[in-house]
Design a protein around this nucleic acid. Sequence first.
DNA 1: ACACTCAGTAAGTTAACGCTTACGGTTAGT
DNA 2: ACTAACCGTAAGCGTTAACTTACTGAGTGT
Lengths: 111, 111
Amino acid sequence: MAYQEILTVLADPTRRQVFERLRGGPSPVKAIATGLPVSRPAVSQHLKVLKDAGLVEERSEGVRRIYSLRREGLAELRDWLDSFWDDALLAFKIEAERTHRHNTRARDVNE
Amino acid sequence: MAYQEILTVLADPTRRQVFERLRGGPSPVKAIATGLPVSRPAVSQHLKVLKDAGLVEERSEGVRRIYSLRREGLAELRDWLDSFWDDALLAFKIEAERTHRHNTRARDVNE
DNA sequence: ACACTCAGTAAGTTAACGCTTACGGTTAGT
DNA sequence: ACTAACCGTAAGCGTTAACTTACTGAGTGT
């Protein structure tokens, strides 16, 4: 999943609460919803979005769906963040590549 | 600034474009707006939001305002992301602290 | 078979927010 | 002083998206 989607998905406060609630370990929907300021269907909707973004995974145990964190889902966002700190290095690389006429990898400046 | 704000601020696509455009170095507003699919006032509004979030800084050069990246503004988001990868380690620490009755640092589970 | 719990989906409402146009203020050049 | 360029802000509009209620379905126990 692209970092863009991860950002938009995690931007919503209650969806972030849902996400962070899974830090404590896997949990069924009802347990997640308890204590949150929104209804249970709302939590279901958030979980669907989180799942589609690869930030959460789901398994069934009888009648309940157990959701758990997918930390790998955060990887792309993390990489994007990291890329900001070696912009100077990257600029140097590009210059080096230009002069040496030899490509390694490119990065989008605008998405 | 809190990571929550950084997420919501960077969630918008065109605002992210504005932000990423500054990777190439400081730039006046008009130059940023050129090539973007929105009007110049829209860019101004985005820049204000970015500035309030500490992701961008501004200086004046005559009649133009030069905006540049503030990479430190991303720090809190980065820390938050990192915190997901040592949850297990953190759990261990907490247990250790509990038994040894000796605090180091705490982290919020729910915002 | 019936009832109860858990959870996803549909439909509709409301509020937030990103955009545009219009305007005002500041700087620089002639 | 007049004009032009650069930019921020106000007001208003339209769309998106998060929420609620209502419904349906699947699993489990009696």
